[in-house]
């Protein structure tokens, strides 16, 4: 086992030994999804006639990934507090590998959970088939890599778990709320549309919406896919560069 696979294996083992983490990641978005659909189903509709539960599907899968990534980022802070990270950083293993192992494992775990949430849509909603769900997997994977990388880069600069909750509330949750996944951006006010334009999470969500045909994005496909892939690369780079620099100086 080399350093990277050992570190990735550790993350998976840790995840499987914390069943509450799995339940929280999938359960919370599923609950929010059900409550939102029950409350707003008749109030929000689209020209395409898709049901609100389908409109929400990409956002809810993204939320599952955001939650899973938050757990992944928190595990970095836990590693630092427990002394594991310090020990790993002084080992001969390249520090970028430590970042990469966190991004890979965090992304796979988050992606798997996002897929678990979005998969039933193909069986519940007549407009969505397995083809649509399959088409959404790449943007979902990009969300997982991008958010994980971003979360890890942010967690690197935060000393405590409670401090990271602040980051989560100030950065990650607004990113999700303003991604255009909860409401149609086309009918939203102009300032919200501007925010969505600069919000990196709104691009993969709009790509999934396009795949699901729940919204007709005005942007060309190449731009949607390009921005989606760019988001993943940016997240990966953010984590690698930040952690690769080595232990934080006090």
């Amino acid at each position: 086992m080399n350093a990277l696979s050992a570190l990735v294996w550790r993350e998976f083992t840790r995840f499987l030994r914390q069943p509450s983490r799995i339940a929280a990641c999938i359960g919370t978005p599923a609950m929010i999804w059900i409550f939102l659909v029950s409350g707003f189903a008749d109030a929000i509709g689209t020209d395409e006639g898709a049901s609100y539960s389908v409109i929400l599907a990409p956002a809810m899968a993204a939320l599952t990934i955001v939650f899973a990534s938050i757990f992944g980022a928190i595990s970095l802070i836990e590693d630092r507090q427990s002394g594991f990270l310090q020990a790993a950083l002084v080992s001969p293993a390249r520090r970028e590998l430590i970042a990469l192992s966190k991004v890979i494992s965090g992304s796979v775990i988050a992606f798997a959970q996002g897929t678990v949430l979005i998969l039933p849509v193909a069986f519940i909603e007549p407009q969505i088939g397995l083809v649509h769900v399959s088409g959404s997997l790449v943007p979902l994977a990009c969300i997982a890599v991008g958010i994980n990388g971003l979360g890890l880069a942010l967690a690197w600069r935060v000393d405590s778990i409670s401090g990271f909750h602040g980051v989560m509330n100030l950065v990650l949750m607004p990113m999700w709320l303003l991604s255009g996944g909860l409401f149609p951006l086309e009918t939203a006010s102009s300032w919200l549309r501007v925010i969505a334009l600069v919000n990196p999470l709104s691009w993969p969500i709009r790509t999934i919406q396009g795949v699901f045909a729940t919204a007709q994005p005005s942007e060309p496909w190449w731009l949607l896919w390009g921005a989606t892939i760019l988001f993943a690369i940016a997240g990966l780079l953010a984590a690698s560069v930040t952690i690769g620099r080595g232990p934080r100086q006090r």
Binding site: R14, Q18, S82, F84, Q86, P92, A93
Partner: peptide, 29 residues
Amino acid sequence: ALGVAFQSPGLDRLLTVRENLVLAGAISE
């Protein structure tokens, strides 16, 4: 060339002793 034991043990409490040591061996190349 380094071996370091910090004030906080660099072990993962969710893993077994063997798993921790195998992991330490892997990251020590």
